[in-house]
């Protein structure tokens, strides 16, 4: 069995006193790829933001452990230094900070927090350029403001470039496939696959199955009404693609990811919840 990377137990998150996540349980082992799917407003982005430490999202119940540590007690930058990475659904534009300067500041901040020396400027540049080529991005994007005037595809590629440069241990990708044409999707997926390693885990938050055609998940979960309503293997994603998110009639046996901490919700999720996270 893989070492434990992420363990979410009975997580409840409220935004403006409205429950968005209502008892989420999830176990992610090292080297595993988990896809979290679900309809709009089901709380997928809330989960992603909460894990990264967005100040607007606080857990009102439950716990999250990352490699055995209490993730929720860590600051945003401590989580980053510990190896947690969120690829944003809507990457932020920062005019005036060049992409390369941003990558360098980020990497050196991470290294500093880990007690590692700063990188040699030339080695850093060479390694970033190699990854830019790998992502088939224009090198000129390195010298533009972060995401400034980038196309949708360029922004998503830039998130994956950061993933490759910063080399986190747990990557949460929030709708990284949305707004991509098929070629961009293939490039982005290839970058994500290049990141995969036995000691790194991926959580793919996605609305559609098509990203999973290129990145084979080990587990697929359905987040609906603030809970994980179903879990399964890659075949679950294909079923959802065919049949939509309407829960199958009758209680579906939850897929046990771990012996005991599978996400169970036999009654099926309540319908019509407004998530407010998208």
């Amino acid at each position: 069995m893989a070492d434990e990377m992420l363990s979410i137990r009975d997580l409840e998150v409220r935004v403006d006193d409205k429950p968005i996540l209502q008892g989420v349980n999830l176990q992610v082992g090292a080297g595993e790829v988990h896809a979290i799917m679900g309809p709009n407003g089901s709380g997928k982005s809330t989960l992603a933001y909460l894990l990264a430490g967005h100040p607007g999202y606080q857990a009102s119940r439950g716990e999250v452990r990352y490699r055995g540590e209490d993730l929720l007690s860590m600051s945003v930058e401590q989580r980053a230094a510990a190896g947690v990475f969120l690829a944003f659904q809507y990457p932020v534009e920062i005019p005036g900070v060049s992409n390369i300067q941003f990558l360098k500041s980020a990497l050196n901040s991470l290294r500093k927090q880990r007690g590692e020396p700063e990188l040699d400027a030339i080695e850093f540049l060479d390694s970033v350029k190699a990854k830019v080529r790998q992502m088939q991005m224009e090198e000129a994007l390195l010298y533009r403001g972060v995401n400034e005037g980038f196309s949708g595809g360029e922004k998503k590629s830039n998130e994956v470039l950061q993933l490759l440069v910063l080399e986190p241990t747990l990557a949460i990708l929030d709708e990284t496939d949305s707004g991509l044409d098929i070629d961009a999707l293939k490039r982005v997926a290839a970058g994500i696959n290049a990141y995969r390693r036995a000691d790194r885990s991926l959580v793919l938050v996605t609305h559609y199955q098509r990203l999973l055609d290129y990145i084979e998940p080990d587990f697929v979960h359905v987040l609906q009404g603030g809970r994980i309503s179903r879990s399964g293997g890659p075949e679950l994603a294909r079923e959802l693609e065919r049949e939509g998110y309407v829960p199958a009639t009758g209680a579906q046996a939850p897929f046990e990811i771990r012996e005991t901490h599978g996400s169970a919700h036999p009654q099926g999720p309540p319908e019509g919840r407004e998530g407010g996270d998208e």
Partner: peptide
């Protein structure tokens, strides 16, 4: 604040 969060999520401390 969203830009601040973005930078912090990449490892920069709040002041930086």
């Amino acid at each position: 604040s969203q830009a601040l969060f973005y930078l912090q999520s990449r490892g920069l401390d709040a002041d930086s």
